[in-house]
Nucleic acid binder design. Structure first.
Lengths: 230, 230
DNA sequence: CGACCATTTGATATGGATCAAGCGATGTGG
DNA sequence: CCACATCGCTTGATCCATATCAAATGGTCG
């Protein structure tokens, strides 16, 4: 019988691999200016819908300013949030031709809107663009995978991991403002608002975080947070 | 949500949709024979590892015969299964340069192993291949998204949805054999084996399914199952 | 047949949900 | 500038779905 050991020898072969360093930077920059030229900037008010569940996915989006959530309303009326998007994130990639989630603006949001067909046509001729599209999808996949792993943990672990993720994505070392409400956090983590509140109070009482205002978070003991998610 | 099937069935509405009909069929076939020529068939014994967590992802895989699971062991020792793969599914696409999940054979499995670098080189010159790679990643993303939505439902809903998904993916109308154990099902659905067992007993007592043997499932009342997941 | 492992079934415990009330910040009209 | 309404959040009491612990059953393979 064949064994599998011989299989894993070569250097990594991920799509983006030969784009390391300057090459990757170039492609990223090129891609960004491309879509900036192809797209239109739009302003969405707090709470307004960017696209709806089951709508054809004719566009994709790059967030300039603000915050966006994608979500689905379940049969029992609960809302499950799929992802949060922060400045410079690209979204609307989470699915195929028809959106399976809806997206709306959590805060006032400046969004670059790009027509898919034009970008797709471009990808037909430009390998770098095609590669980039693939990479974006792949990152979205990574994120979704992490979300699955998050949802099987207990409440303390979910909240701790969420706070570390937010700090990271907001480039904050210790202190940041959550762009979303407690209800949003609850719907993302698959918990209730009461549980979120209790866990935060507990973390505050344990001197692991501080909450100077309702939206502001100070990470006082990052190691303790990391230990929580172990 | 339940309509998603194996990687090879194109969900309605994907970006590649302008490849409808003969064009897509051609591409799919071309791609399949391409990778068959590029890859090597290997046999994995029941329970043997196909790739490990944190190994470089140098290959991807097409399952010929058997069943495969990808999973991650959590800090507390629990095992979370990310996906099951069935014949003709392509896997090893669930991430970037390094695997974030491990994969092993649930049953004896015949697997076509393809070197990523060779396929990637091909994609550089062949749009159809590049498109195909994107599509595969995108399907994986769809599946992961469904998994997130599954994990926030209650035990009955999760099990009902799982059974419908399996029937669909195994192309079974009423009757099929589960390739995986109760423990696997539990680890996929984020439940315990006892809960799986109790829900199955309940579904059997309600004449919604029958379980003639431990692995065999007969769907006696599909509508009731669908109603359960509403 | 006997041993072993997977599954089922039963009894009890518990984490997080639910229901309910209180609180604090923000805004509005008088 | 204050009284009051509103909304988002916190806190408390209780409940319930699922986990956990434990034992019985069944299926498989020597």
């Amino acid at each position: 019988m064949l064994t599998r050991t011989s299989v894993h020898k070569r250097p990594a072969g991920h799509p983006s691999d030969h784009l390391r360093g300057p090459a990757l930077a170039f492609v990223t920059h090129e891609f960004d200016s491309l879509i900036e030229r192809m797209g239109t900037t739009m302003l969405f008010r707090r709470g307004s819908e960017i696209y709806g569940d089951k709508e054809p996915a004719d566009y994709f989006y790059k967030l300039g300013r603000g915050a966006v959530r994608t979500y689905k309303i379940l049969n029992d009326g609960r809302r499950q949030i799929g992802s949060f998007y922060l400045p410079n994130d690209i979204f609307g990639f989470e699915n195929g031709t028809d959106h399976t989630l809806s997206a709306d603006a959590i805060t006032e949001a400046e969004v670059l809107v790009i027509k898919r067909t034009s970008l797709w046509a471009l990808a037909e001729q430009n390998q770098a663009v095609a590669r980039r599209l693939w990479l974006l999808t792949s990152h979205e996949l990574d994120r979704m995978q992490d979300h699955v792993l998050l949802l099987v943990k207990n409440a303390h672990e979910r909240v701790a991991e969420f706070m570390l993720e937010m700090a990271d994505r907001l480039n904050a070392n210790r202190e940041f403002d959550l762009p979303m409400s407690r209800q949003d956090v609850a719907d993302y983590l698959g918990l209730t608002i009461e549980t979120i509140s209790r866990v935060l109070t507990h973390l505050e009482n344990s001197a692991i975080i501080a909450l100077p205002t309702i939206r502001r978070v100070v990470i006082k003991d990052r190691d303790a947070l990391i230990r929580l998610i172990s």
